[in-house]
């Protein structure tokens, strides 16, 4: 993948701790560039999750909060209600958002909380060393599904974007991916749009980003991209799930 990066004011010039090839870094950049282009870095407050991106508070140049595992949307709610003119986002992994933090994200969306959530779905718990996530695909082997995820015993993966798009408080929900240059550009557009709608005061906005975890998938970065394309995209179809600014979206 040939993506050339200009430095962005949205990120601090520090080395990150992410594994080689991990796409968390790209996603950070897309968020940071969007904030910079919208000229809102100064009034943005981000909320970091518990997961591999726990140290995101060291990387984003805006003010940051660190939340307990899964609670970022509640923390963001507290921030936005205190400082209604600010731009508030959460950045969360699939364990953080779709397992332990399910209640918080569902209710933030249902309340139409004027925040933006960036949801990084890599089908696994990265930080703790590769356990099953709520988004782990059927049959996928992880540290806690050593015989492959058996949906009869361990349940089915959650399509979070589709689920949240049923809630009236959510105004914009899109699933994107960072597996190719074209998709990275689309992801950027989606993230920027989500922030724009937040700034316009429309309601809750949500962008799910399909991401890779070479380390815990046990694949090279290149193989991981292919695995994402072959396995994740068919299960988690890309596209806009809801957009109140467009009348009809399937």
């Amino acid at each position: 993948m040939a993506v050339v990066f200009e430095p962005t004011k949205g990120l601090l010039d520090v080395p990150t701790h992410y594994c080689p090839g991990c796409t968390h870094g790209i996603i950070h950049r897309l968020v940071a560039e969007s904030l910079e282009e919208l000229g809102v870095i100064d009034k943005t407050i981000g909320v970091a999750p518990v997961g591999c991106s726990v140290l995101a508070y060291n990387y984003f140049a805006c003010d940051m909060h660190e939340a307990a595992h899964g609670r970022a949307p509640a923390v963001a709610t507290g921030i936005k209600r205190s400082l209604p003119d600010s731009v508030v986002f959460t950045y969360q992994g699939d364990g953080d958002l779709a397992a332990i933090g399910t209640a918080e994200i569902v209710h933030a969306a249902a309340r139409g909380e004027k925040i933006t959530t960036i949801f990084v779905n890599n089908c696994i718990y990265g930080m703790t060393g590769g356990q099953m996530a709520p988004t782990t695909l059927p049959g996928q082997v992880t540290e806690t599904s050593p015989y492959g995820r058996d949906v009869k015993l361990q349940g089915h993966p959650i399509r979070v974007s589709e689920m949240l798009s049923t809630l009236d408080g959510a105004v914009y929900v899109e699933r994107v991916s960072v597996d190719s240059v074209a998709n990275v550009l689309k992801a950027k557009k989606a993230i920027k749009k989500a922030f724009e709608l937040q700034i316009e005061g429309k309601g809750f906005t949500f962008v799910e980003v399909l991401s890779i975890c070479p380390t815990n998938w046990g694949l090279s970065p290149r193989e991981s991209i292919k695995w994402l394309q072959d396995n994740m995209i068919p299960y988690y179809p890309l596209g806009v799930k809801k957009d109140i600014t467009q009348q009809e979206v399937k």
């Binding site: 703790t128 356990q131 709520p134 050593p146």
Partner: peptide, 28 residues
């Protein structure tokens, strides 16, 4: 899962199904 005890769950996920007992990773 949580560090530094995650291996307990990993061990149980391997062993419990083999002997007909229950291992379940909860959502929290």
């Amino acid at each position: 899962p949580i560090t530094p005890q995650t291996e307990v769950a990993a061990y149980m996920s391997r062993r419990m199904p083999k002997i007909g007992r229950v291992f379940l990773q909860a959502e929290s």
